[in-house]
Design a protein around this nucleic acid. Structure first.
Lengths: 162, 162
DNA sequence: TTCTGATGGTTACAAATGAAACGAGTTTGG
DNA sequence: CCAAACTCGTTTCATTTGTAACCATCAGAA
């Protein structure tokens, strides 16, 4: 019996990783070149900009980061005076994190760039291909249980699934 | 005008990265738990198992790894006596890498596990969802120019695209 | 030939990462 | 009340990674 070989270039885990890596590397220029942020720092900024105030634990859940990454990213953004910590009144272990004016300004500056990046990426695809990647990614998220929460636009897709 | 916010959970670069990370982490148990391989080492093993003999540069291209990763992975696999280096006769900078019997044995042991992993992953999806993720990933690879080479099964898909 | 620049691959150093231990605070159960 | 167990977040340490410098070799041009 002929020994099996694995074609790496067709292997989905590899392809997914390579794709995500390429996209992420490209996107990182937006926050790295302009402000010297790392990915954890960008995600922290983005999370707080989006939600307003969060604890470090919540940030970790929302942005899928290990707590040490959160801790270090928060420390760096605090050093830049882009966020402040407010002790929780009931539980002194907890700190509520909020962007400062400077942090919010940086966030608001980057949001349009991020959206434009995503649009440009999707614009390279045909309509059916866009639909395919969105549907495929969503279905894998659900299958793996890494789904976080449904965005308005996706509810229809999920509903249509049933 | 209301300031724009970015919904991280719906942002494609983030979702792709998180998904790939989850899949890759899960898959890494196959080569990490059983043989203590790192991802670069696994890719090196996989590349050589698939192609038989390659140079470090070729390995880097095939498996999308930086040359320092390749260099270190090759050094480790050589230390394990899983591969050997053969100097090129015409160009003394080049070494041809080949798996030893032990390396090949490890490769052949892991290939079915890898394939089973991929099958199990896809089995969690419906037929249309499987088609969607394959089509979506392929179209993004093409759009980004990270495509490496067409596997037999994909030729139809690409051809049908035109 | 000899100079220049490109290439294959390794190494050195700094930065990013993850696992585990940690201190401080809180909750639970006796 | 008190001790064990748990949680929040930080820090320590070892490993992994990327950038850049590096050595050796090769190819091309003067």
């Amino acid at each position: 019996m002929e020994p099996e070989i694995l074609e790496l270039e067709s292997f989905l885990p590899y392809r997914l990783y390579r794709l995500a890596d390429a996209v992420s590397r490209e996107f990182s220029r937006i926050y790295k070149d302009s402000h010297g942020l790392t990915r954890p720092e960008w995600r922290t900024l983005s999370g707080l900009g989006q939600r307003g105030t969060m604890t470090a634990t919540e940030l970790g859940e929302q942005s899928a980061m290990h707590k040490t990454k959160v801790s270090r990213a928060v420390a760096e953004l605090e050093r830049r005076r882009w966020l402040t910590r407010t002790p929780d009144e009931n539980d002194r272990r907890v700190e509520h994190l909020t962007l400062t004016k400077a942090g919010l300004a940086a966030y608001r500056e980057m949001v349009p760039l991020a959206k434009a990046f995503e649009q440009a990426l999707l614009a390279k695809l045909g309509a059916d291909e866009r639909a395919a990647i969105v549907k495929g990614v969503l279905s894998l998220e659900i299958a793996l249980g890494t789904r976080q929460r449904l965005s308005p636009g996706e509810c229809k897709t999920v509903a249509a699934k049933g």
